[in-house]
Simulated scan of single mutants.
Amino acid sequence: MIETVDARGLSCPQPVLDTLAKIVAMGSGKIEVLLDTEASKENVARAAQSKGWRVESVEEDNGEYRLMLAGD
């Protein structure tokens, strides 16, 4: 099952904090993160990787981003 973090419209560091909270709550699995700024995309990806999660894909559509994260 894929969990979703919708962080569109949120200012940093909130997207990072919400994503890290989901990572801690899940422990492993897949998370879809929805973002609307380049800075949030970079910060969330970096934070997830620091916790041992992989960025499986990044999609961009009209200034919005969808990151797929995976943790073992």
Results as ranks from 00 to 15, higher is better:
I2D: 13
I2T: 15
I2P: 08
I2M: 15
E3N: 13
E3P: 02
E3H: 15
T4D: 10
T4N: 11
V5D: 13
V5W: 11
D6M: 04
A7S: 08
A7V: 04
R8A: 02
G9M: 03
L10K: 15
L10R: 14
S11A: 13
S11C: 04
S11Y: 11
C12H: 14
P13Y: 11
Q14L: 14
Q14M: 12
Q14F: 11
P15R: 03
V16Q: 13
L17S: 08
D18S: 03
D18Q: 10
T19P: 02
T19C: 00
L20F: 04
L20G: 01
K22I: 01
K22N: 00
A25V: 00
A25K: 10
M26P: 00
M26A: 04
M26N: 05
G27P: 06
S28I: 02
S28F: 13
G29N: 12
I31C: 04
I31A: 03
I31F: 08
E32V: 04
E32W: 08
V33D: 11
L34C: 07
L34V: 03
L34Q: 09
L34S: 05
L34P: 03
L35Y: 13
L35A: 08
L35P: 09
L35C: 07
D36R: 10
T37A: 05
T37R: 06
T37M: 08
E38Y: 12
A39G: 06
A39L: 14
A39T: 12
S40Q: 11
K41I: 03
K41S: 11
E42Q: 13
E42K: 13
N43A: 15
N43W: 15
V44P: 11
V44D: 14
A45M: 12
A45H: 11
R46W: 14
R46E: 14
R46M: 11
R46I: 09
A47H: 07
A47I: 02
A48H: 05
A48I: 02
S50M: 04
S50Q: 07
K51C: 04
K51I: 00
G52E: 07
W53Q: 01
R54T: 03
R54L: 06
V55K: 06
V55Q: 07
V55W: 08
E56H: 00
E56T: 02
E56S: 02
S57I: 03
S57D: 12
V58G: 00
V58R: 12
E59R: 14
E60N: 05
E60I: 06
D61N: 09
D61F: 09
D61I: 04
N62C: 01
N62I: 01
N62M: 06
N62Y: 10
G63H: 07
G63M: 04
G63C: 04
E64Y: 03
E64G: 00
Y65D: 01
Y65S: 00
R66M: 07
R66H: 06
L67M: 05
L67I: 05
M68D: 05
L69F: 10
L69H: 10
L69W: 10
L69Y: 10
A70M: 12
A70G: 10
G71D: 10
G71N: 12
G71Y: 14
G71I: 13
